[in-house]
Design a protein around this nucleic acid. Structure first.
Lengths: 115, 115
DNA sequence: TCTATATTCAACCAATCGGTTGACGATTTC
DNA sequence: GAAATCGTCAACCGATTGGTTGAATATAGA
């Protein structure tokens, strides 16, 4: 009924949810740990996590009494591809972005020093 | 007050607004012409257009009694770059990603040459 | 078994959203 | 000047959103 892009973009529109995604970029986390840095209730964070899950941006797996949250970048990639179709991004130089990523993803010993 | 990403993603979350953006990809259009293919009132489309404008996704310029709508890909670019960071997994160094963004989003005359 | 921890559920709330309608101001055209 | 066109404004509506609280459900550990 509703385009997956609806739910993905709607999920990304909230700063709390984007912050959660950034946290999960570094490591998988339990719900309680996700909630810790925020000033809202655990229930509120739990709702944010189900929204992210339904959007396909994360997956949740229960092990014991702990539910682990894991980034799932596929849905974001779909949205990203949609946005690319507005491709006149010339000024922002996706080329140099790719070079940046290549650098970042290279094995550590091939990386040029940045400091 | 609110992160520009909030308004950009929120604007993109509505299918009508995404359709409008796709239409504007082909050519600039007057408000009435934007509204024509949709089954909702002109006033509704007008609201959608102000949301897109506030998000920075389009610009509107009035000439005579006609208001022309034009795609403005800069805001989308910022959102797109934000999303790119999730496409590739773990090893992305967020610190240097931020440095990259500062560089990219800086005024052109302050940018170091990349070629 | 009793208790503490992890998470969700259910009910509620105010604010926002996406739509409508009708009136209105500005501009063009006859 | 009168009439038609372009677009927004204002008020209203029902549905959704983002948050709260308190109770409920699992699971783990003593």
């Amino acid at each position: 009924m509703s385009d997956p892009l609806d739910t993905v973009f709607a999920a990304l529109a909230d700063p709390t949810r984007r912050a959660i995604l950034s946290m999960l970029l570094e490591d998988d986390m339990a719900v309680t740990d996700v909630a810790e840095p925020f000033q809202m209730s655990l229930a509120a964070i739990s709702k944010h996590l189900t929204i992210l899950t339904r959007a396909g941006l994360i997956t949740q797996e229960k092990r014991g009494r702990v539910k682990w949250c894991k980034l799932d970048p596929d849905a974001m990639k779909a949205a990203s591809v949609w946005m690319q179709s507005f491709g006149q991004f010339e000024p922002v130089n996706l080329d140099s972005f790719e070079r940046f990523l290549e650098q970042e993803l290279a094995p550590p010993d091939t990386k040029p020093l940045t400091e």
